[in-house]
């Protein structure tokens, strides 16, 4: 059931990411909805599930944009792995957790992706606009990670997955 919820969440996130506007005053930053789903699984589920989610999210983002396949997956997996290191040291129920992780990982993943694309000569942004986009992605990342935590958390609770994870964590 975890994977079904994840696939539904990823599909919804991909549609949101495509449809939500990229404001010019935030450097045309997109809402990093796929990143938000990866962060949810990084902080609420096991490492394997998180990596699977990062792979699928990356593949979706790359397939629906001119990014070469695999690039976003690496960035998402890296961000998810770093977030999962803090899993036992943060308050998962506090709203500030998704806000902070969403902002940091949103900007971090966008920067990592930019570096990879720029090395291939696929993008070349002036530093001012790049900075604006990174700040914008951080701000939008904070918002949509909070929304993703609320929405997927509700879904997980609805199908009884949250309790199962907590029991597993207690044994682990």
């Amino acid at each position: 059931m975890t994977w079904v919820i994840m696939l539904v969440s990823l599909a919804a996130a991909a549609l949101c990411q495509m449809w939500l506007p990229a404001p010019a005053w935030l450097g045309q930053a997109k809402f990093p909805a796929l990143m938000a789903v990866v962060l949810y699984y990084a902080l609420n589920h096991g490492t394997g599930v998180m990596f699977g989610c990062a792979f699928l999210a990356g593949m979706l983002q790359d397939a629906l944009s001119p990014i070469p396949l695999g690039y976003s997956g690496i960035c998402f997996a890296l961000a998810g792995w770093i977030a999962s290191r803090f899993r036992r040291t943060v308050l998962l129920d506090a709203a500030v957790t998704p806000l902070v992780f969403g902002a940091a990982c949103g900007s971090g993943a966008a920067l990592a992706l930019y570096v990879m694309l720029a090395r291939q000569g696929l993008v070349a942004w002036p530093y001012g606009r790049l900075l604006l986009k990174l700040v914008g992605t951080g701000a939008l990342g904070a918002l949509c990670t909070l929304a993703a935590f609320l929405a997927i958390g509700r879904l997980d609770r609805l199908v009884g997955l949250t309790e199962a994870v907590e029991e597993f964590d207690g044994l682990g």
Partner: peptide, 10 residues
């Protein structure tokens, strides 16, 4: 159908 790619780089 929609404008902008999912990454916002292009």
């Amino acid at each position: 159908v929609f404008r902008g790619d999912t990454s916002g780089w292009w």
